[in-house]
């Protein structure tokens, strides 16, 4: 499913190169649930962004479902993000001034779903995460837990095989964290590949295995 070989990501800090990722090789099989752990600045988010096609590696080869992501164009990467990946992020990344339904519909606006099916699919996704009764509510009027459910519904609506989550419970209390993690587990049980970046041991304990990153390297 996810195959990375000798991946490096280099940023220029002044005149000196800074390795956010250095020679990372990684394999995540289909249907796995993996936690990526490490301290702040270790390179966890950079790794997630490269896996998700938000960023491209400077060195190495990255294959996702047989696709060479490193060689994809801007439009190709956009298609990968739309069809292969579902993102769940710490700040929810929702469009606050719009309704829940609109937010969940947006990935379909950039995808191939026929216009006539969009509303039904969006409502089904909201149903799956338990917030279908909030469909017409503005996101800004919802609690953190509800927002994260909406974000998960948005990640699921195009039925991508991979769900990437960056500190998905970072802004939530422990009770809501538990509920959200159960949602991720249920996705994993439905065959989705789930990769969760976290520094929370409890969150990592829901996963099949953990990968630890330090100074841009997997240890």
């Amino acid at each position: 499913m996810i195959q990375m070989e000798h991946i490096s990501k280099i940023y220029q800090v002044g005149d000196a190169p800074f390795y956010a990722l250095r020679d990372v090789s990684l394999h995540i099989g289909a249907g796995e649930m993996v936690a990526v752990r490490g301290r702040s600045g270790a390179g966890k988010s950079t790794l997630l962004h490269i896996i998700g096609g938000l960023d491209t590696p400077d060195e190495g080869r990255y294959m996702l479902n047989g696709l060479n992501v490193g060689e994809a164009t801007d439009a190709g990467l956009a298609r990968i993000r739309n069809e292969q990946i579902g993102f769940v992020l710490q700040d929810f990344s929702l469009i606050d001034h719009r309704s829940t339904l609109y937010n969940v519909t947006v990935p379909m606006l950039f995808g191939k779903t026929p216009f006539s099916q969009m509303k039904t699919k969006a409502l089904d996704a909201l149903e799956a995460v338990g917030v279908s009764d909030q469909a017409h509510k503005a996101v800004s009027d919802m609690s953190g837990g509800q927002r994260q459910r909406v974000a998960i519904a948005r990640a699921l609506v195009n039925d991508p095989p991979v769900i990437l989550a960056d500190e998905p419970t970072g802004n939530l209390d422990s009770e809501t964290t538990e509920e959200i993690m159960k949602l991720f587990v249920s996705l994993h049980e439905r065959g989705k590949t789930v990769v969760i970046v976290t520094h929370d041991e409890h969150v990592a304990s829901f996963c099949d295995r953990s990968i630890t990153i330090s100074d841009g390297k997997i240890i």
Binding site: L54, D74, A75, L77, A78, R79, R81, N82, E83, F87, L89, S93, L94, I95, V106, P107, F110, G111, R154, N158
Partner: peptide, 15 residues
């Protein structure tokens, strides 16, 4: 910021 959110879910830079 809104464009960045669209980018996450499949909007290319060109779009």
């Amino acid at each position: 910021s809104e464009q960045a959110k669209y980018y996450l879910i499949g909007c290319s830079k060109r779009e």
